[in-house]
Amino acid sequence: MSNDLKLALVVSDSIKAQEGAGPLRDAHDWVPAGEAEALVVLGGDGFMLHVLHEMLDKNWIRPCYGINLGTVGFLMNKNSHKRTIAERIGRARKIGVRPLEMRAVTQDDDEFSFYAINEVSLLRETRQTAKLEVKINGKVRMAELAGDGVLVSTPAGSTAYNLSANGPILPLGCNMLALTPISPFRPRRWKGAILPDSAEVEFRVREPGKRPVSVVADQKEIRDVRDVRISTARDKELTLLFDPGASLEERIFAEQFQA
């Protein structure tokens, strides 16, 4: 990537990010986001997801180089001053991330559509167990999944909620999705499935009045859903930039060998 790339600086409102932005503001000739060829994002993973979602919503997609001034920083690079920001981006490796498109219909027949970079989760709203019919490419694969819920995860999101729910870690570029139950009651021994990212996954809520279910696409929630359809948004591929040797792919490998 060229060192004379037009860059925009996007900073989280957190105190840590605002203070960390000080040295960077005078270290480069920044341009407005609308004129930029790439964005430098200062903050944590949550803020990076916020920026990526804003780009998806506006259909204005640019490569993003994150600098971790948050907590975990799984999607970010280390905050280092050994090289200039232009040099770091010039050496950065590109990683493509395909989001999911979630389309939901509520019990009142309202329709919603959101994107998810990590995962789409269906969750019970009350103490009543959720009961879901699971379809893959239009074919019923499970007539009734009973439990706290279920999620569909991208490879980029497979180390987040999916991993906490005992789902598999997916390598980047594998073109697969993880379908993972959340505290399943029936079938009790079902551990989920790995699906090609060309698959369309559908859920129908059984007894929605008695057993209400919400759906969450990353941070956006719709309550009292009746039907949910999930597919990969191939035309909305995002690009994250990582320092050599510290890519998202390497972090996913590392997660699989932690004691």
Score class of each variant (00 low, 15 high):
Q219W: 05
E200Y: 02
W190V: 00
S214F: 02
G209C: 01
G209R: 14
K191I: 01
E200M: 14
D197G: 07
K191Y: 05
P196E: 10
Q219T: 14
F203H: 04
D218P: 07
V215M: 02
D197F: 10
V216H: 07
G192P: 14
S198V: 09
R204N: 05
E200A: 07
P187Q: 13
S214D: 00
A217R: 06
K191M: 05
P212R: 13
A199Q: 08
F203C: 07
R204T: 11
A217N: 03
W190F: 11
P184T: 00
V205Q: 04
V216A: 08
L195M: 08
R188T: 03
D197C: 03
S198F: 04
V215A: 02
R206I: 15
R211H: 12
A193M: 10
R189L: 13
P196G: 11
V213N: 02
A217H: 09
D197H: 11
P184N: 10
E207H: 09
G192E: 01
V213Q: 01
E202Q: 13
Q219E: 10
V201I: 15
P184C: 02
I194A: 06
V215R: 02
R211A: 14
L195Y: 10
K210N: 10
L195R: 06
K210I: 14
K191W: 01
F185P: 01
R188H: 15
R211V: 10
S198Y: 06
E200F: 07
E202L: 08
A193G: 06
P184R: 07
F185I: 09
Q219L: 02
D218F: 05
G209M: 11
A217G: 08
P184M: 04
P184D: 07
F203Q: 03
P187S: 10
D218M: 03
P212K: 10
E202R: 15
I194P: 00
R186M: 14
P196L: 09
V213R: 01
R206V: 15
Q219A: 13
R204K: 13
D197S: 11
V205C: 07
R186T: 12
E207F: 14
V216D: 00
E200V: 15
R204Y: 02
V205I: 11
D218E: 07
D197T: 08
K191C: 01
A217T: 03
K191N: 07
V215I: 02
P208Q: 12
R211F: 12
A193P: 00
F185H: 15
P212F: 13
E200Q: 14
R189Q: 09
A217D: 04
R189V: 05
R206P: 04
Q219C: 04
G209A: 11
P187I: 05
D197I: 07
P184H: 08
P208V: 04
P184G: 06
K210C: 01
E207S: 12
V213P: 00
D197A: 04
W190R: 00
R206F: 09
A193R: 12
F203L: 05
V216K: 13
A199I: 09
V201E: 03
I194Y: 06
R206Q: 14
